[in-house]
Design a protein around this nucleic acid. Structure first.
Lengths: 397, 397
DNA sequence: TTGAAAGCGCTACCAC
DNA sequence: GTGGTAGCGCTTTCAA
């Protein structure tokens, strides 16, 4: 409070030297360990008006300088900036945002569902994109109700949002589109006209994985996929991957074996067991699950089926997670960090009005590690079964 | 703009029915796909004044209702709330924050360093704590300079912050304490008087791990730890774990073998190799690294040393990551999600003035999985070496 | 129990 | 180039 009194009594007639002296006092008072919550009380902070007074200019001028407007004399700019630095002034974010009508914030709506090791990368990528552009990054977990989404938009907390877990027909997308609220998707709908997105190309990824396995000689290739209700709800990855799997198998003349399961280790273990019971002659599996695919490994171990000698496994997963598996998991690479970063970048570009609509669907990349081999006639004799000799990646970091 | 005109012309003399009708018009106008960016333009949104006008009360009253103040007649409250619901009004967050002087936001300062599979849990835990308390959650990556930290505090973007990667003497802590800005630590300093923290008890964890290995008969137990400069800088986990290791080994009469390395897979692999060269008779390792500990596994594999038959390994890691290892990693459990959640909860409690200082140092829990066994005299004959028969956890989820 | 009005700290328009 | 000033949308005394 003492600081406040001092500050408020400063008048524009004081010389710069005196102002500086006062700044020092202010600093030491504020800085003393006297236990008063100076910043949190938030009322005795330096304002743009203090700067203006100290510099002998108007608040408009200070504001212009703060916002890098061109129409300021170089001398003034320097003088004011010196004082800003000296008093250690930073504009009050909420005030700026209110007055400017923009929050310079993007929000990531992050599905609450459950932990998954690879999803950290989405978050960190998007956060990095925000900080690179001097934007604030707002992370929202918990799945939103329609009402909550409306509130988020109206609250003006963020200028734009990143959506994940997109369904082919997604009410959030319809809503945001209708009210004209800026957003981008990680994922995509059935119709994406006018909407920015970046998505994994599950169609091509599945085709690539299936063809790779088929080319090694596999005939019975199962798809471990999402639970049935994910398909029914039109969850993009679920529908696209299954369709592509069906199509590819048909083209290649292979039987189709689909095993739906929740993305938990226990359910996936069960599903794998059931699958092996039904199809003892299975030689390959494609998993749509992330790190929970470890449950598939464990289920195979328990039945004494070796990877890749007896059964080959492919998943969609980040490099980092894939390399934790033993044997390392051959996978369609899921560059989640990049996806997050690109989404953030696209959203900010959109907010700044630069560029048109971007539909980003990077070509899937199959990274060969050690969980895939040709099928072995002499099963249970895996060590005699030669491992395919492909490009191997041990991308340690 | 049409919406704006309509809205602005509404006067308090209009009947409620007409107001409702107008609300419908507004809704459909705003909702039409005419391509005007209604929300993003942010100027034609409904305000508290519109509500007041429509309800025939003052803005003060609406504000009171919005903030659940007690001094409002029940009838008024109901009537106004009905209108709020009808018009789909949500207060403008920035305006609220500016006027109230609080942002109801916490920020997590997340070390940029590098990806680590387990750290997602810190983030999601803290985010959950925020959302549970109706707080906004900002994630800030990139390590802050002193200047940036000052700016963050002064900007009033957040009411309080969560700090990670704490050093024994941490300039950020000194600064925040000095200016009285609310914060909590995941980690702790040498002196934590008056500061809330939650931390892994590395001292006890290391002691526990070392004693466990010693009790199985291990005599040469190495500590794979942080690089030397982390110690020099006084990074808490580095200093505390090494000290505890030294002390425990001394007490048990064991030699000390310390191998520092950066937390990257390649460096860790190198360090492991070097370690095995220097100490071929090593039978156990304790790793301070997270999922990068996979590099230790791989280095051992390459030298044909089996886990746990030839070498036992213990790390500090989340359950989820530990179970991806093969054999599953016996570990001091790192409940990172809970740590994040607790930190968030403590910070918000502090902001709301409830309760005193909390120093949370949960007792470390050693979870026995399959990477530890008694040392085997007949090395290279691992399969003959019996695996210890302890509590085993296969916590699938 | 309610209303009027003075801010919160900043931006941006308009005049000089 | 610069200054005055009217908001931005809300909270919060202080009176009534």
């Amino acid at each position: 409070m003492r600081a406040t009194c001092l500050k408020r009594s400063v008048t524009s007639t004081l010389s710069l030297d005196i102002i500086r002296w006062i700044a020092i006092i202010l600093g030491s008072v504020t800085g003393s360990g006297a236990g008063h919550k100076s910043m949190s009380a938030s009322s005795n902070a330096i304002t743009i008006a203090d700067i203006a007074r100290a510099a002998g200019v108007s608040v408009s001028t200070v504001s212009r300088i703060l916002n890098n407007k061109p129409d300021v004399a170089e001398g003034t700019r320097q003088r004011v900036q010196a004082i800003i630095a000296e008093l250690g002034f930073t504009p009050h974010a909420q005030a700026q945002r209110l007055a400017a009508g923009r929050s310079r914030t993007i929000a990531l709506l992050f599905p609450d569902a459950q932990l998954s090791l690879m999803r950290e990368e989405f978050i960190l990528g998007a956060a990095k994109a925000a900080s690179d552009a001097s934007y604030t990054f707002y992370l929202m977990t918990s799945d939103l109700t329609r009402h909550q989404l409306m509130a988020l938009c109206r609250s003006a907390l963020a200028d734009g949002i990143i959506l994940m877990e997109i369904h082919l027909r997604d009410w959030r997308v319809s809503y945001l589109k209708r009210i004209g609220f800026p957003f981008v998707m990680i994922g995509r709908c059935a119709n994406n006209k006018g909407i920015n997105f970046i998505d994994m190309d599950f169609e091509r990824g599945i085709a690539q994985a299936t063809e790779h396995l088929a080319s090694l000689g596999h005939r019975k290739i199962a798809l471990l996929t999402f639970p049935d209700d994910a398909h029914e709800r039109g969850y993009g990855p679920a529908v696209r991957s299954r369709d592509s799997y069906m199509r590819t198998c048909k083209q290649l003349g292979l039987p189709t074996i689909v095993a739906p399961a929740n993305d938990t280790r226990s359910q996936l273990a069960e599903a794998t067991d059931a699958l092996l019971n039904r199809h003892p002659d299975l030689t390959a599996m494609i998993s749509m699950h992330g790190d929970t695919t470890i449950a598939v490994y464990r289920a195979l171990e328990r039945r004494d089926r070796r990877i890749p000698a007896d059964v080959s496994v492919i998943a969609f997963i980040t490099r980092r997670a894939a390399e934790l598996f033993t044997p390392p998991l051959t996978a369609i690479d899921f560059p989640a960090y990049d996806f997050g970063y690109q989404a953030g970048r696209m959203l900010i570009a959109q907010l700044q009005g630069s560029g048109g609509v971007e539909h980003v669907l990077p070509p899937p990349q199959l990274v060969l590690r050690e969980s895939v081999a040709p099928p072995c006639a002499s099963r249970r004799n895996g060590s005699a079964c030669p491992v395919g000799n492909h490009e191997r990646r041990d991308a340690y970091r």
